[in-house]
Amino acid sequence: MASYDVMPDVQLYQPAEMDDALELADRFGRDGWILGGGQDTYGWLKDRAKHPKAMIDLNGIEALRGVRKSDDGIEIGAVTTLREIIRNETVNAEYELLALAAGRVASPQIRNVGTLGGNLSQDARCWYYRRGLACYRAGGNICYADSPQGMNREHAVFGASRCVAVSPSDTAIAMVALDATMVVQSVDGERLVPAERFFVGPATHITKMTSMRPGEILTAVRIPSTWAGARFYFEKVADRDVWDFALVSIAAAMQVDNGTIGDSRIVCGGVACTPHRLRDAEKALAGKSLSDETAEFVAPLASRGAKPLNYNHFKLPLLENLLRRAVRG
């Protein structure tokens, strides 16, 4: 068994214009690797578990940076760093959910260079997959995690289909809760994808985490004003306070009027391959007050339909607890 930690040969392109980046993405297709902060890039390459021919570094493209106000909400460039998002006034004032989520990503050092686009597009953290094994997700024909003796404490309890990896992104659940839209560009033009459809599960796309196609670049995220200033709750439970992925996380956006909940979007991370919406709970919450009673009433809905694996049934009570915390008064 070889072990690697030296960067392999790979061409680095640093386009300054979006058109050039799109042209490069188109030219290299599957062999191209879109580079943001590089925090989910260099490991793959140095381990020689992924073999792109070219890296297309987006950091030189000014248009992809920053938080802009739009007619209906805000637009955040894909290479805006998580730190910039955490410190942005508008985000904090109106879409605090995103700031809270971004603030729990990895570690301060990683947030300084890690980008929103990269965080949203990051790959599964399943330890078998990260080992470079030829599992379903890597194009193989087996899942090592969902086996009779598989070590799968961190894996999915919902929506698994052969692969049981979970969505690792903290900002993803916030984006789904905020009903954001992903702006995806290619040489063929622009595609707008609702956050909920941006993330894909193994039943349909077992080797991908997002609906992005080769040659496409996630350029921005648009957050509508629908949920601006709503009541937000974010919590991430991980083994460690920093540099860790969620065992279970929750991002909730609720329209609350006089203590009564109206519409809500409640999304969990770490429990399914995609951000997992608690639709039953959302429905049940409508018209209820923020209270301990409501919390107790809806909590069991969070884990309904869950299928735990060998080592992760703790995620069920945890999920229920996080929902409780989100809707308590």
Binding site: V237, D239, Y311, N312, H313, F314, P317, L318
Partner: peptide, 17 residues
């Protein structure tokens, strides 16, 4: 003593192992 052990204990669930 990992998080999951504490959660399972409090929820009166069996440990996974």
């Amino acid at each position: 003593i990992s998080r999951d052990m504490i959660i399972n204990h409090v929820a009166e669930r069996e440990q996974s192992f």
